[in-house]
């Protein structure tokens, strides 16, 4: 319930129009990476573990299905009804089926204990990286807001009464010096080769923070702040998607992800944290 207080009852100018306008089409920006009928490019340090599991699973499934299918087709061909042949009443002693089932069970156990649980555990335990980039991700119909602590690395005090969805969507306290360099952006900029520590929350309904090329997905649940982290390794321009039905414009709730070199990132932050224009739709 921490996050809840953050938004507690504030009168603010409606921003519907602004939100609706969120990046409907690909608007000319070139998106990097290969996309096709299989998993998209992976530009994270750890995503390959998830890909590995997905691949392994599909080999297993295909093997089962093919083996099973061969027997199936064999039966259909061999045991068609023919004059003079009767089905035999006696039950076959089908040991193989037992084995098949046991194999399936064992394999599932291995997948779960050997792969899924460890991966999930590592996803859930923060990266040892001493000073990761901290970002608060605030979802709303139908836009993403990214709140950076600025170069002092500290988030300014935030209070609902300061929220102005047009100029200060995160409700940063103007009187708090720490907050002066805070940045709130409609674009997600991150340096590569550094862990990013995100806190996901929502102002209104449930959204889902999805970065396909990062193998990251986390629902944004109003009233909760859910941490999620990842480690980009390749510069470029990518997409943040909303994966949970959140209303009419769910489909257009898209933000751009800029993975930059440390220096480019700092330059961007510098520019943004200059007062006056602390907010930018991207």
């Amino acid at each position: 319930m921490i996050g809840a207080a953050l938004w507690a009852g504030t009168a603010v100018a409606p921003r519907a129009a602004l939100a609706q306008a969120a990046a409907p089409k690909m608007e000319g920006v070139k998106i990097d990476g290969e996309y096709g009928p299989f998993l998209p490019t992976d530009v994270s340090r750890d995503g390959h573990r998830i890909d590995g599991l997905i691949d392994l699973l599909h080999y297993f499934m295909i093997a089962l299905f093919v083996g099973w299918g061969i027997f199936f087709v064999y039966c259909l061909a061999k045991f068609r009804q023919r004059p003079g042949r009767k089905a035999d009443y006696e039950m076959v002693k089908a040991k193989p089926s037992k084995y098949a089932e046991i194999v399936v069970a064992i394999f599932e156990a291995v997948l779960l204990l050997g792969f899924s649980i460890p991966i999930w555990a590592s996803v859930k335990t923060p990266d040892p990286d001493p000073n990761p980039v901290k970002v608060r991700v605030i979802a709303e119909q139908f836009a993403w807001n990214f709140h950076y602590p600025g170069k002092d690395g500290k988030f300014g005090k935030t209070a609902p009464k300061f929220i102005n969805t047009a100029t200060n969507p995160a409700g940063v306290d103007p009187s708090d010096p720490v907050g002066n360099d805070d940045v709130v952006s409609g674009e997600l900029h991150l340096p590569v080769n550094k862990s990013a520590m995100c806190e996901i929350t929502s102002k209104d309904v449930i959204h889902s923070f999805f970065i396909p090329v990062m193998r990251v997905k986390q629902d944004a649940v109003p009233g909760m702040r859910i941490p999620v982290w990842f480690h980009p390794v390749k510069t470029g321009t990518y997409e943040v998607a909303c994966a949970q039905l959140c209303g009419n414009n769910h489909y257009s709730m898209r933000a751009l992800l800029f993975l930059q070199t440390e220096s480019d990132y700092n330059a961007w932050l510098e520019k943004k944290s200059a007062p006056a224009e602390t907010f930018d739709e991207g």
Binding site: W7, A11, Q141, P222
Partner: peptide
């Protein structure tokens, strides 16, 4: 939860 703000309207 507390304090939902839907398209700017608390």
């Amino acid at each position: 939860p507390e304090g939902l703000v839907v398209s700017g309207v608390p």
